[in-house]
Design a protein around this nucleic acid. Structure first.
Ligand code: MN
Ligand code: MN
Ligand code: ZN
Ligand code: ZN
Lengths: 141, 141
DNA sequence: ATAGTATTGATATTCGTTTTCAATTGCAAC
DNA sequence: GTTGCAATTGAAAACGAATATCAATACTAT
């Protein structure tokens, strides 16, 4: 059993929820993906594997995985949201290429620290943040 | 005539578009607002003034004002987008209080500089960015 | 005035996401 | 293992912000 499964099981158990075969299948597939994906991508890939999991269940399970801290949602303007597993990964932010749609990940410690500082200055209790840099990637200049 | 009106007139003229009474009314009302507003807020306020401007025209005109650089759209998760006029204002980012919905504005020069630097490091041509700090405001801790 | 085009409001449509609900399933207590 | 029951599921319907459609109207230039 992978660590993510253990974490998900504990989360569900604490909430009085059940560990179903659908939830396991979705968890395992999400953990096997190393890109940013849309709900439909995930749904199609599961069906290609021969699993007939409904659209609704994919949405519902992703919500659980987000609440559990295994998955992160990237709100995208003008297109369906993207998701990615973050369990086992360090925090990062994203650049979106407006031409080819490429998503580039980055981490910048000074930005993270200044965010903390700004929040403190406003006596704001930061629980998270969300930084997206829009523009054109190397190939699309 | 306020500066924003001059700018909007020039923008429309260059694009071969027309300066209509609806567009003027929306522009003036948007410039009079000093909060972040949803499309429905704006629409209702215009109707309260006795102006019968359609929903569609409000959306369409906001899109023009954004393209023109007078207005900015703040994508909100789980709720309709918010807008604000930025003409005559310096760039700023936002903190969203998850409890009371308050929006706090801030500007942090080091964050802006580091964003530029990160983009350059990835040979990414930044055209804009979007930073939202989520959490709880002073009153909502 | 006239013609040509942009704009409008009302309405319908889109589409990602959420909800509904009856049938099914997991799970804990017996 | 049987039972009881709430949680879960899939299919379909509903939702809702945003957009598209289109006939009527209003500018603009000639
Ligand atoms: Mn990522
Ligand atoms: Mn603002
Ligand atoms: Zn690109
Ligand atoms: Zn608050």
């Amino acid at each position: 059993m992978i660590d993510a499964e253990r974490k998900f099981r504990e989360y569900l158990s604490e909430k009085g929820l059940r560990f179903t075969s659908e939830r396991l299948a979705i968890l395992l597939h999400v953990m096997s993906l190393h890109e940013h994906f849309a709900v439909d991508d995930l749904h199609h890939q599961l069906r290609q594997k021969g699993l007939s999991i409904s659209h609704a269940t994919v949405f519902r399970t992703l919500a659980l995985l987000i609440d559990c801290g295994i998955v992160q949602k990237l709100p995208c303007e003008k297109m369906p949201a993207r998701y990615e597993h973050i369990f086992g990964h360090l925090h990062h932010d994203h650049m979106f290429c407006l031409r080819c749609g490429r998503i580039i990940e980055f981490h910048n410690a000074p930005i993270e620290r200044w965010q903390q500082k700004v929040a403190e200055e406003h006596r704001f209790q930061m629980t998270g943040h969300h930084l997206i840099i829009r523009g054109y990637c190397e190939k699309c200049h």
